[in-house]
Structures are given as structure tokens and as C-alpha cells.
Write a protein that binds this DNA or RNA. Structure first.
Length: 569
RNA sequence: UGGGGCGUCGCCAAGCGGCCAAGGCAGCGGGUUUUGAUCCCGCCAUUCGGAGGUUCGAGUCCUCCCGCCCCAGCCA
């Protein structure tokens, strides 16, 4: 977050609070519910909250809003902690949990009852819905609204003790059943859930609602700016009402900003969960998922995610950011930092007829064209090589502009090596291309060929001596629809059937056989790839597998909707 | 027909009454290049959802209208 960048409305508020002295030190918090994995939308919130704290010399807490044991679990807690760390943020002190405040929250519920501002209601869920009224009609008071404090206290105690069945009683705030804001029509504060909680165990049979917990948690932690998404704006009056009617130790303020929506994907925990549970993807960390775990396994770096999030506006508009914008930041970071490597995805054998028999020359290739400090690596070069089938054509009519690769009878430069000429082809019994017979142009290593020889372009290669077999997973966007969420249709209808294509028998330079997971390379002329990290409990037999993070931008001329021209095989 | 929020270039967005309406992404044109990558240069809103009004002057203030999003979980 650059200080010279235009400030968003929250920064304006904070700077104002600091200037007026109403806030001494900024305290924010990132409050996930441990009922799923974090996704790119959460990253925006994480970067905002931690970023603001850092920018204004404050602190940011990591607090789990674990008020609903029904859907939450320790697995999610651990995954979320790992994700926040991976992104590179450090929260203040220990990780906090709403469940650590259950005792205090309960005491405050008692306080509200004693003040005549909360009551135990025995309306059934259906009745409660009916009493609540509609968007245009006011609700009606619950028949249990006028109970005495003593009776309410006794009932709450019974609820807590596990003597009441789920759904039979709730504790409600006593506010205004005619409020135009439905959240103020005596909202539920506590509900009976006679089940164990992943942290507090079997101690409780009642659990606070989000509304009764969030503001008070913020107050307990001294949070100054409680930042949440737009849909909670309607809850702010309730957030304020509770803090105003409870003896809380601090007075936090809630501010809402527009959540991140990305095209060609979904950022809803419910839908992501559905993709996982219905098997459309291989898990929460499937590289096609917009989860942080998925992006990590895909090879996207924390730096790219943070740069992307910092580029996003914090405002009250809810739009859809183009996936292309995210991809831009992924490429930018990877282009700057990823070491280069050569890997042939669809191998085609090339034999250099005029290469001295048995000779293997050691070549040195830079690990990065713009950053010599990243060093170089050795690559053997011999008579048998592999190039990509898509980089060869027998069609001599192809113009140099259309096809800057190898054409029968023409020259091409092998990246970091020699210029070669395709002399002839070998076909198998079925007539399919099986090998290219070529000749090397002498003295073209690091030097231009003689006048008259003009290579069409530069292609990548791997020498047979140096090749290691690997599989490559080519990932595309998970959805072919720009806005899978739009309309009334099923978002799954937009799933891209070609979001994963696995190539086997690829030929990688031997150095890649030692690649560590989560280190992303640029396979020159192809894209960015990283070795699969085998996250989760899945395993692929420890084969060498690379996940494509993202393809290189491609300005090659291709007729709309078709494969590159002139390819054969 | 209740309440809350939002409408500035294809997408995101700055703008807080006064030079020709920032910037990023995408796109287009050109240059460099042993990655059709990167990099570099140039182009890309006489107009701010619409209509009135206030003002010497409005995207910025007022009025009305139109459109989109959220809220009727004992989810968060």
C-alpha cells in the first residue's frame, strides 16, 4: 500500500480518527469462520486489514468467528492459519477465537435480560418467520416478549444446561418488531445447539449468533475499525445497538466495503464447497480453485496475490474484476522472478545428421534474460533432440510472419544453442510424422549465421541426453462463463470441460527433475509451471508432474478460435 | 410497495464546485529482442445512468426519474 496512492474511504476515516485523537492506535482484525478454505476474495480482506494496520502503525488480529459448531472444524482452522501465514502476514499476539469469549458473551446476555432488553422466545422457527413480517409489512410482538427477567434468566439457564431441545427456545433482543430494518425485529442472540464445539468441547449447549458475537468480540479486543463486506451494512444498527446497551470495554466502529468478485470463477464458500463435494475438482487445493491453497498449488506466489489485492479499489461498489487483471499480476511477478527452463510438451524427435557422432557439448543458458545475477545452468547438446510438434511444419508456403518456427527446408534457431535446418522427415507405417532429419549450421552458437541464412525464429528444445520424462497439467479457467453466478441458472453449467488437460511423455531438461514444489519456473515459450506439491492426502506415485500456473501472453497470429496454423502430427 | 447500498472508458477505478475528466487491466498501432515473452513508444471518455435546477463555473450541490446489488437463517 503506497503512501502516495490515492486513499480509499477507510483510509480517510482512519486518518481523520487519528488526527482527531478518537483513535490512538489502529486495531483491525481478520475474522474468518472456520467452515471452509480461504479464497481470493478473503485475500482482499486480509490484505486490507493487515495492510491498514501496518500502514498506520497499528496491529491486526486473526480471530476465528467460531460460533457455529455445526459447520466448523479444526481442519479449516489449521488450513486458514497456514494460508494467512503463507500470504506473509503476522497477526498480533496469539490467534483469537470467538469461543474464548463465550463466558463473557453469556454474561452480557444476562446483563441484557436484567435490563429488560432480551427475552427467551418459544416461537417455533416457522412461527418466528411469520411474526417477523415481510419487507413491506411490520412484524408482530412475540407472545413471550413480556416475560420477567427472573423467568428469562431461568430459561436461559435451562437452555445452557442442555435441558431444552434444539429449536424450542432462543434468546432474542427486545428491540422493535416494526423496524423497517428486519435485523432489528428482535433478532436471535442465542440458539440451542446441543453439540460439541471443536474448541470449547461439550461445555455449551447454546451458541451466540453472529450478531451477538461480532461487535462484542471487536470490543473485547479493542478493535477500532471493524471492516466487513457490504451485505453487513444492514447489521450495523444492530452492531451499534448491542455495543450501546452493553458495558463493553471499547467502542469499535463497523465499516463496509465491496467484496471482490472475479470473472470466470466463483468466490462463494458454499459454491466452492459444492465443487469439492460433488467432485468437479479434486479438492479445496485443486489448482483450478480460487482458494489460496489452490493458487499455491498452482504456482501463484503470495507476492502476486498481494500486488493484485493492493491494486483493487476499496469502495462501496460491487463489481466484477476481470480475471485478466489477476492474471496480469501473476505474470508480472513470475516474469520478474521465475527461473527459466526448457521443457518440450509434445516431443518430436530431431536428428542432426552432420553432428559429430557421439559428441555431447555442454552449453550454458542464462536462468533469466534480464537478471544475470540469477546465474546460468548447463545443458548438454547432442545429435538427438526433441522439439515441440507444434513448432514444426512441412508446409513451406507458410510465411515467415505466420510461422516463426521450423519449416521443412528452412532454418530456425534453437534457444541458447545452434541454428539448424530441417532437411527431411521420417514417417511411421501409418504415415504420421515421427522424426525430423536436420543439420546444424556450424559456428552459430552465440553467433549469427552466415549471410543468406535467416532463421525463422527461435524455438525451445531438449537434448535426448538431458531429457527427463514428466507429465504436465495444463490448467485453464475453471469456468467458461464470464459470470458463472449470473442469472438464475445453475452455476455449474458454466464449468469449463477443458479446464484440465494432462500431457504425459513430456521432455524436461534434467535440472527440472530436481525442482522443488512451489518453485515456479518459466518453461520458455510456453508459460509458468511448478512441480505439483501433492498437497492434501493425495499422491501420484511421486512422478514428476508440473502444474501450469499460467501460459505466457501469446501475440502469435491465430485465426479466431483455432489452433496455431501449419502444425502437423 | 419497506429499509440499506451503488451507478465515471469493454473491466476495475481516481475525482471532496474552478487548468484540456488520473491511473491500472484489456484492446489497437509501432520499435527492441536468440522466449511470437519481457521491455519501450504511441492511440484509446468534448464526457461522468437520465432529465431539470442552483452557480460566473458541476462528474462534484439540489430535485425528480431510471437501473443494479443486499436484507424476511435458530448461517456468517
Amino acid at each position: 500500500m503506497d503512501s502516495d496512492k490515492p486513499r480509499n474511504f477507510i483510509q480517510h476515516i482512519i486518518e481523520n480518527d487519528l488526527a482527531e485523537g478518537t483513535v490512538k492506535q489502529v486495531v483491525t482484525r481478520f475474522p474468518p469462520e472456520p467452515n471452509g478454505y480461504l479464497h481470493i476474495g478473503h485475500a482482499k480482506s486480509i490484505c486490507l486489514n493487515f495492510g491498514l494496520a501496518e500502514q498506520y502503525g497499528g496491529v491486526c488480529n486473526l480471530r476465528f468467528d467460531d460460533t457455529n459448531p455445526e459447520t466448523e472444524s479444526e481442519e479449516f482452522v489449521n488450513a486458514i492459519i497456514a494460508d494467512v501465514r503463507w500470504l506473509g502476514f503476522q497477526w498480533d499476539g496469539e490467534v483469537r477465537y470467538a469461543s474464548d469469549y463465550f463466558e463473557q458473551l453469556h454474561a452480557w446476555a444476562v446483563h441484557l435480560i436484567q435490563a429488560g432488553k432480551a427475552y427467551v422466545c418459544e416461537l417455533t422457527p416457522d412461527q418466528m418467520r411469520e411474526y417477523r413480517g415481510t419487507l413491506t409489512e411490520p412484524g408482530r410482538d412475540s407472545p413471550f416478549r413480556e416475560r420477567s427477567a427472573a423467568e428469562n434468566l431461568a430459561l436461559l439457564e435451562a437452555m445452557r444446561a442442555g435441558e431444552i431441545e434444539e429449536g424450542k427456545m432462543v434468546l432474542r433482543a427486545r428491540i422493535d418488531m416494526a423496524s423497517p430494518n428486519i435485523n432489528l425485529r428482535d433478532p436471535v442472540l442465542y440458539r440451542v445447539k446441543r453439540m460439541a464445539h471443536h474448541r470449547s468441547g461439550a461445555r455449551w449447549n447454546i451458541y451466540p449468533s453472529y450478531d451477538f458475537a461480532h461487535g462484542q468480540e471487536d470490543a473485547i479486543e479493542g478493535v477500532t475499525h471493524s471492516i466487513c463486506t457490504l451485505e453487513f451494512a444492514d447489521h450495523r444498527p444492530l452492531y451499534d445497538w448491542l455495543l450501546d446497551n452493553l458495558p463493553v470495554p471499547a467502542r469499535p466502529r463497523q465499516y463496509e466495503f465491496g467484496r471482490l468478485n472475479l470473472s470466470y470463477t466463483v468466490t462463494s464458500k458454499r459454491k466452492l464447497k459444492q465443487l469439492v463435494e460433488e467432485g468437479h475438482v479434486d479438492g479445496w487445493d485443486d489448482p483450478r480453485m480460487p482458494t489460496l491453497a489452490g493458487l499455491r498449488r498452482r504456482g501463484v506466489t503470495p507476492a502476486a496475490i498481494r500486488a493484485f489485492c493492493d491494486s483493487l479499489a476499496v469502495a462501496k461498489t460491487d463489481g466484477v474484476v476481470d480475471m485478466g487483471q489477476f492474471e496480469h499480476f501473476i505474470r508480472q511477478d513470475l516474469n520478474d522472478n521465475a527461473p527459466r527452463a526448457l521443457c518440450v510438451l509434445r516431443p518430436l524427435k530431431v536428428t542432426l545428421g552432420n553432428w559429430p557422432a557421439g559428441k555431447v557439448e555442454t552449453l550454458h543458458l542464462a536462468n533469466h534474460p534480464q537478471r544475470p545475477e540469477l546465474g546460468s545452468r548447463e545443458l548438454p547438446f547432442g545429435a538427438t533432440l526433441y522439439i515441440d510438434r507444434d513448432d514444426f511444419s512441412t508446409d513451406a508456403a507458410l510465411s515467415r510472419k505466420q510461422f516463426k518456427r521450423l519449416v521443412l527446408g528452412d532454418w530456425v534457431r534453437l534457444r541458447g544453442a545452434y541454428v539448424i535446418r530441417a532437411d527431411d522427415v521420417v514417417r511411421d507405417a501409418s504415415g504420421a510424422l515421427s522424426e525430423v532429419l536436420a543439420s546444424v549450421v556450424p559456428d552459430t552458437l552465440g553467433a549469427d549465421p552466415p549471410a543468406g541464412i535467416k532463421p525463422r525464429g527461435v524455438i525451445h528444445w531438449v537434448a535426448a541426453e538431458n531429457a527427463v520424462d514428466c507429465a504436465v497439467r495444463l490448467y485453464e479457467r475453471l469456468f467458461s462463463a464470464p459470470e458463472p453466478d449470473a442469472g438464475d441458472g445453475d452455476f455449474r453449467a458454466g464449468i469449463n470441460p477443458d479446464s484440465l488437460v494432462t500431457l504425459t511423455g513430456c521432455k524436461a531438461e534434467a535440472n527440472l527433475g530436481r525442482a522443488a514444489p512451489e518453485v515456479t519456473f518459466q518453461f520458455e515459450r510456453e508459460g509458468y509451471f511448478c512441480r505439483d506439491s501433492f498437497c492434501g492426502d493425495r499422491d501420484n506415485g511421486n512422478r514428476l508432474v508440473f502444474n501450469r500456473t499460467i501460459a505466457l501472453r501469446d501475440a502469435s497470429p491465430k485465426p479466431a478460435g483455432t489452433k496455431p496454423p501449419g502444425t502437423e502430427g
